[in-house]
Design a protein around this nucleic acid. Structure first.
Lengths: 134, 134
DNA sequence: TATTGTTATACTCTATAACTATA
DNA sequence: TATAGTTATAGAGTATAACAATA
């Protein structure tokens, strides 16, 4: 088990270093992916979904707006609300980072033996499933 | 490949949340593990090994010293040098965090089918090997 | 009164530049 | 002159508490 933990940590560090475009933080990256995938979202929704406080999300969105990755719009029916939307610049960055990660993981996988590659294709999706799943 | 990337990201986020004792940062945790494994090390060595700047390591060690996790000692032969050493408190924290991660990963793995478990035991060490590898 | 979002403040973690002390 | 380490300063990212505006 000790060896497995070490392996996971290696993998974590490797992945964290592989997507460098835009130098987005983990949370910023997750927010941008979410906005690209699900469309405009309220600030509070984003804070809850990414497990950060509302003020933290306010500040993150302020920085991301300054960097032209997202825009703040007003909510149609709730005067208190803010709708955060991804920009074209943001979409481009999401695509670039996705490509970078895919390349990095691809380079890793092609160094493995055939049986190891098959094991990876089974192991990683299975782990993701049980992390998410009930 | 898209699914694999998503899987790795799930795993990364899961692991990052699993070891909570002491609320150590990634770098602090890596430094503490290293000092426990390899014995006292110079500040510059630690900075290089963890890919952070020397001033960042100075500040991290200052905070860790304040929290009684490490001590600063002087180098025997080099008057400029500092030797950082883990304390008993630090060792205890390393053990606790290791146990937490092992439990978290164990809980995950026991939800997998037998073939999936075998795949994980092959895939993760293989990935770690090629990340490190030549 | 409850919710949404912002502002104020503080701490961690990171960096670069400038400095001190020793080799 | 080069290396080891610290200090000064700044910015990202996080939190809690206090606040304003709207529901």
């Amino acid at each position: 088990m000790g060896e497995l933990i070490a392996a996971v940590e290696e993998l974590v560090r490797y992945v964290r270093r592989s997507a460098t475009t835009g130098e987005l933080s983990t949370t910023a990256s997750a927010v941008l992916n979410r906005l690209g995938r699900e469309g405009p979202r309220r600030l509070t929704e984003l804070a809850r979904a990414e497990h950060v406080s509302q003020p933290s999300m306010t500040q993150l969105i302020t920085r991301m707006e300054r960097d032209l990755l997202v825009t703040r719009g007003s909510h149609r029916t709730d005067g208190r609300g803010v709708l955060v939307e991804i920009t074209d610049t943001g979409r481009t960055m999401v695509r670039q980072r996705h490509t970078e990660r895919a390349l990095a993981l691809g380079r890793l996988i092609e160094k493995l033996s055939e049986p190891e590659q098959r094991a990876v294709l089974i192991a990683l999706p299975a782990l993701a499933r049980v992390i998410h799943g009930p």
